[in-house]
Simulated assay, not measured.
Amino acid sequence: MDPDAGEPPAGDQFLTVERDWVRVEAGSSSEAPIVTLYAGGDPGPQAGWEDVEEITMVSTTGFLALCDGGYNPVHKANLATAGTGTYVIRVHASDRSSEDKKPRFLIQVIPGQRTGAEPAPPSATIEDSEGPLLVRTSFTQPQEWARLLDALDEAAQKHHAPLTVIDNPAYTGHTPAQITARIQRDDEGWPATTLVLIADEQALASAEYPVLAVNNLPDDDDAPFRITLAAASSLVVNMELSNTDFREWVQGVDADGIYREEHY
């Protein structure tokens, strides 16, 4: 994973390691893979993947990057967040042998060694959840995310808005369409979740936390809109009680495209 450090490892195992390198066997699919990267503290293994394996490597240069099959960097961002030293590389994979799907990978680069302790429980997934969701798609602002959760807890205590938080790096950078495509549907096509709030980079960059509200009701084509976290609880409550419809909220946004009024 450091293209300037020695020879990459050879082998046909899922994960093969050498100093400064981990080789990931992409599988037999001819499609270009979709890779999501995570670097930082251990979030634990994620659910919903066909294969999950981890291996320990040593970085002697303090630089780690994702490289393609020709050992050229695909992303130049340095994944070695703790500089030189030992890292756990945990790789999640699905569709590696599929003929009609692109193989998907989630690669976690975690400073330190495996401790032998029980791993953290898998994060909640969109696919296994139902009811209104708050989905985190940006993982570069951990302090802002923590403050958002604190504000959400305070609002929930006041208004009892039913909301499941999805804090899972597998959904990094997901668009509204990608998120709604993962929501389960029953035999009649009714989705398990009809309202999604997305905490993306833009939402976390503002003290108002203007999350993106997405309507997932069948046959509705309302455009997503942004709503402050303070007002989002009222949206969730009223939508769950069928007191209002999504379009009324879209029409009430301010000039900057953000809805701020609370209704209880």
Rank of each mutant, 00 (worst) to 15 (best):
E262H: 13
V74C: 01
T86E: 15
G116R: 07
I258C: 00
P9Y: 00
R19G: 00
A47W: 10
D254E: 10
K76Y: 10
A39D: 05
D100S: 13
T180C: 04
V24S: 03
D128C: 12
S97T: 14
Q184W: 11
L195C: 09
L212T: 06
Y264R: 15
L152S: 01
V35C: 00
D42W: 03
T36G: 05
N243Y: 03
D51Y: 06
N243I: 03
D42L: 02
D221G: 06
V237M: 14
S234H: 11
A82Q: 11
E18F: 00
H92V: 02
G69E: 06
T180A: 04
R182G: 08
I198P: 04
R185N: 09
N72V: 11
V22A: 01
I198A: 06
P176T: 00
V211Q: 02
P218E: 02
Q141I: 09
Q46D: 09
R23W: 04
S30R: 13
I55Y: 04
T140M: 09
L197A: 14
P132N: 06
E262P: 04
V236C: 07
P121W: 09
H263W: 11
A161M: 14
G85W: 02
Y38R: 07
T194E: 15
G116D: 07
A205N: 11
A177E: 15
E127N: 07
Q178L: 05
T228K: 03
L163N: 05
G44P: 04
W145P: 01
E118G: 06
T125H: 08
A170D: 14
G44Q: 05
R114A: 10
T172W: 08
E118L: 05
I166N: 00
Q143A: 11
S138V: 08
L148H: 12
V17I: 10
G173L: 09
V253Y: 00
G69Q: 03
R23Y: 00
L66Q: 01
T172V: 10
L37E: 01
G70Y: 05
D219C: 12
G6V: 03
I227R: 05
A181E: 12
K101G: 09
M239K: 10
G40T: 06
I107H: 00
K102R: 12
Q108K: 02
M239Q: 13
R90P: 03
D100I: 14
V196N: 05
G116S: 09
W249C: 10
P9M: 01
A155F: 06
V24W: 03
T194L: 08
A223F: 02
E7Q: 11
R147I: 08
P210A: 03
V237S: 08
L148Y: 13
R104A: 13
G11F: 06
V91F: 03
Y259Q: 11
G11N: 14
E54V: 05
H92E: 02
P73Q: 01
K102F: 09
G27I: 02
R104V: 10
P142R: 14
D256I: 01
N72I: 08
A205S: 15
V52L: 00
I126V: 11
N238Y: 11
Y264T: 14
A181R: 07
W190L: 15
E154T: 14
Q13N: 12
H159P: 06
V236E: 07
W249V: 11
L149C: 12
D4C: 10
L79W: 00
L134H: 02
